[in-house]
């Protein structure tokens, strides 16, 4: 048996170990940055759509059941557009369904924020708002993408996401500036989710390649607009922006939280249990 690295081993040593990829190793540009980037867009929609569809039939009021199902439906629609294009660009004959149902967790490229468990309804809404506020800026920028297919999907999705943001921001404000309890719940949600927002703006080699090709913006460039939306909504909602600076990362590179495995176990069950069956 070869000796195993101990916990004190530096990342640099791990990169040299055969077959072990670390965050440092992920700095290198993957062969197909465009397909990789498209999977990030699609996986964000897929995993968030999955999460909010878990609420179906369990929301606090009927109108919210309808609104959440509607949002999930939009996100699943967007997933199909992004992942179909990812498959096309990759050129290995994979469809949106193949990508959604037959990749394992480490091949998923969504940010960690969207896989966070639903928590209470306020937590779900806060996660939605923090994501929507980023999503809309991303889609706005993508409408001038050098790739017309990307610009086309972004134009369609932006109309839907503008509504998602309007709704999630409105509810965050109303619950923040509601009762003492609703405010406390929304503040807790914000505090818990805050360390998962930074990843939305952290670029890597894939993002750099996309920015250089004029396909997508540098993620950091979306930060100012997001900050301003968040600041405005939090102020109106009487919520306090958390002070901590630590931010989790890794989802975009395929290093996920424990939550994703359970999502995939649910989502992929039929495709895994009945390989090759058509539905």
């Amino acid at each position: 048996m070869p000796s195993l690295t101990d916990v004190m081993t530096a990342d640099a040593d791990l990169t040299r170990a055969p077959g072990i990829r670390t965050i440092a190793a992920l700095g290198a540009a993957p062969e197909n940055a465009f397909a990789e980037w498209l999977c990030r867009m699609g996986d964000n929609c897929l995993i968030l759509g999955h999460r909010i569809s878990e609420w179906c039939g369990h929301a606090p009021v009927l109108e919210e059941d309808i609104a959440l199902a509607n949002t999930a439906l939009d996100l699943i629609g967007q997933t199909r557009l992004w992942l179909d294009l990812a498959g096309e660009v990759e050129g290995k004959g994979r469809s949106a369904d193949t990508l959604a149902y037959l990749r394992d967790a480490a091949q998923f490229r969504n940010v960690l924020l969207v896989e966070r468990p639903n928590g209470d309804f306020g937590h779900t809404l806060m996660r939605q708002f923090l994501f929507d506020a980023w999503h809309i800026e991303m889609l706005r920028a993508l409408q001038s993408s050098a790739d017309p297919r990307v610009a086309g999907i972004a134009a369609k999705a932006a109309k839907e996401v503008a509504y998602h943001l309007e709704r999630s921001a409105d509810l965050v404000i109303r619950l923040g500036d509601g009762t003492e309890e609703s405010r406390a719940r929304m503040q807790t949600a914000l505090d818990r989710l805050w360390p998962y927002t930074g990843e939305l703006f952290m670029g890597d080699a894939v993002d750099q390649a996309m920015a250089e090709a004029g396909i997508a913006p540098d993620p950091a460039s979306l930060r100012a607009a997001w900050d301003s939306t968040v600041a405005e909504v939090m102020a109106t909602a009487t919520l306090v922006r958390p002070g901590g600076t630590f931010q989790h990362r890794g989802g975009k590179q395929g290093r996920h939280t424990e939550a994703l495995g359970y999502i995939l176990a649910d989502m992929q069950f039929l495709q895994r249990a009945y390989p090759g069956a058509v539905w």
Binding site: P60, V61, F121, R174, L175, G178, T179, E181, S182
Partner: peptide
């Protein structure tokens, strides 16, 4: 769903 959502509905009403 109804009981867990009570705080949500109260929050909206208070707002």
């Amino acid at each position: 769903a109804w009981e867990d959502g009570a705080w949500f509905r109260k929050g909206l009403m208070a707002h």
